[in-house]
Amino acid sequence: MSAPVSPGLRSGSLPLLVALMTLLAGLSLAGLTGVQTLAEGWSSAARNATTIEIPSDTPQLEDRTHTLVQTLHRTAEVTNVRELSPQQVQTLLAPWLGQVSSSGHLPGLSLPVVLIVAHTGTPDLGAVVHEALPEAVVEEDRRWGERLNGLGSSLVACAWLAVSLIAAIAVLSVGMTVRRSVMAQRKAVEIVHFLGAGDLTISSRIAGRAALLSLAGGLTGLLFLSPVITMLARKLAPFSHEATPPLPTNTWTDMFASWWATLHVLPRMLLEELGALPLIAACLGWMTAQTVVLVWLRRLP
């Protein structure tokens, strides 16, 4: 241990506070990443798909539908054309029309033929479809993509706001702890000051301790966070393209292996952000303590 030239920091509940803040910040970041991933996925899927509805009373429905599908297949940027079966259409419309009979027909209502066209870029399918089959209705899913994008952006903004608020509360907590500590050791701080200790000598010792305690708190928070994140990753797995490892079995080794595998499914960016949290906590702790102590020392001549 280095020779003391200034009083240290009386930590109080600083590590616990930082651990809680790290836990909250980690959850917010995980939420942020989840929202970003889902929004991007939805938006991308909607942007690259077009729905075509052909009314059931269209003359020569089957032949003309077949011709339209052939035309679409030949169109540049179209990657796939899929015709939904009547059962799939019924399932899609069930929220509006209710369950239909087992025969697949609604009394007094005939279902349209629905084509889902997957494509890259933004081909002008409206013109192609209207030329081949003017009765068809083209619904550009891009609009939904834009709406989903907007929703995703606002959720991301909310998550960032939450992270910023947590950081602000953490800074405030560290600042108050440091100030309380300095006030409690006021006499000792004044003694070293009047013996000729520089302001930075005094503040650096306290800030160094604050950084160390914040780092410890950050690591503890990360430790508490990992099972929560793993559990959330499992809950969100159905919305993800990534394969989720099997649920843990009875032995500790299997549980650890499952946890480890789930961590690998998480986005690399999120893992890097979570890993940086303790370091960010330490930096915030150091800067806050330096500022608080230096400002406090200015009152001494």
Partner: peptide, 20 residues
């Protein structure tokens, strides 16, 4: 006296030299 209670007598006495 103004000695720092948390430190040893040696550390209190050594302080001026350490600060220099």
């Amino acid at each position: 006296y103004r000695l720092i209670g948390e430190w040893t007598v040696f550390d209190n006495v050594a302080l001026p030299l350490r600060l220099r």
